[in-house]
Amino acid sequence: MRRLRTERGLSQGDLATAVGVSRQTINAIEVGRYDPSLGLAARLAHYFGLLIEEVFHVDVD
């Protein structure tokens, strides 16, 4: 997600505001400390115009 965000010239705060979460939440997702809820994952994917699977690695184990 960090790559998608930086390619678009967005700060963590910009992205957080766009999807309705805190900057700290975006940071925690980017560094792997937090797995977003399905709703948040969907909002992030929609924001980038992608499928959830294109934004996040889905671990089925």
Rank of each mutant, 00 (worst) to 15 (best):
M1D: 09
M1A: 14
M1F: 13
R2Y: 13
R3I: 15
L4G: 01
R5Y: 06
R5G: 03
R5M: 04
T6I: 12
T6V: 15
T6A: 10
R8S: 00
R8F: 03
G9K: 03
G9V: 02
L10S: 08
L10R: 03
L10E: 06
L10D: 01
S11I: 06
S11N: 08
Q12W: 06
Q12A: 02
Q12S: 06
G13A: 11
D14R: 05
D14H: 06
L15E: 00
L15K: 01
A16E: 02
A16R: 01
T17R: 10
T17I: 10
T17H: 09
A18H: 08
V19L: 07
V19A: 02
V19S: 00
V19K: 01
V19F: 11
G20C: 04
G20S: 04
V21K: 00
V21M: 02
V21L: 04
S22C: 04
S22I: 02
S22R: 10
Q24I: 10
Q24T: 15
Q24W: 06
Q24V: 14
T25L: 09
I26S: 01
A28N: 13
A28G: 08
I29R: 02
I29A: 03
E30Q: 13
E30R: 06
E30Y: 11
V31C: 11
V31S: 11
V31L: 14
V31F: 13
Y34V: 07
Y34E: 01
Y34N: 05
Y34K: 09
D35H: 14
D35R: 15
D35V: 14
D35Y: 12
D35T: 15
D35W: 12
P36C: 10
P36Q: 09
S37L: 06
S37K: 01
S37V: 07
S37M: 11
S37P: 05
L38C: 13
L38F: 14
G39M: 06
G39T: 08
L40A: 11
L40W: 03
A41P: 13
A41V: 04
A42P: 09
R43Q: 09
L44P: 03
A45W: 00
A45P: 11
A45T: 07
A45H: 03
H46V: 08
F48D: 04
G49N: 04
L50P: 04
L50Y: 06
L50N: 08
L51D: 15
L51K: 10
I52W: 06
E53S: 11
E53L: 10
E54N: 14
V55R: 00
V55Q: 09
F56N: 03
F56K: 00
F56G: 01
F56M: 08
H57Y: 08
H57M: 12
V58I: 15
V58F: 07
V58Y: 12
D59P: 07
V60Y: 12
V60M: 14
V60I: 15
V60E: 14
V60H: 13
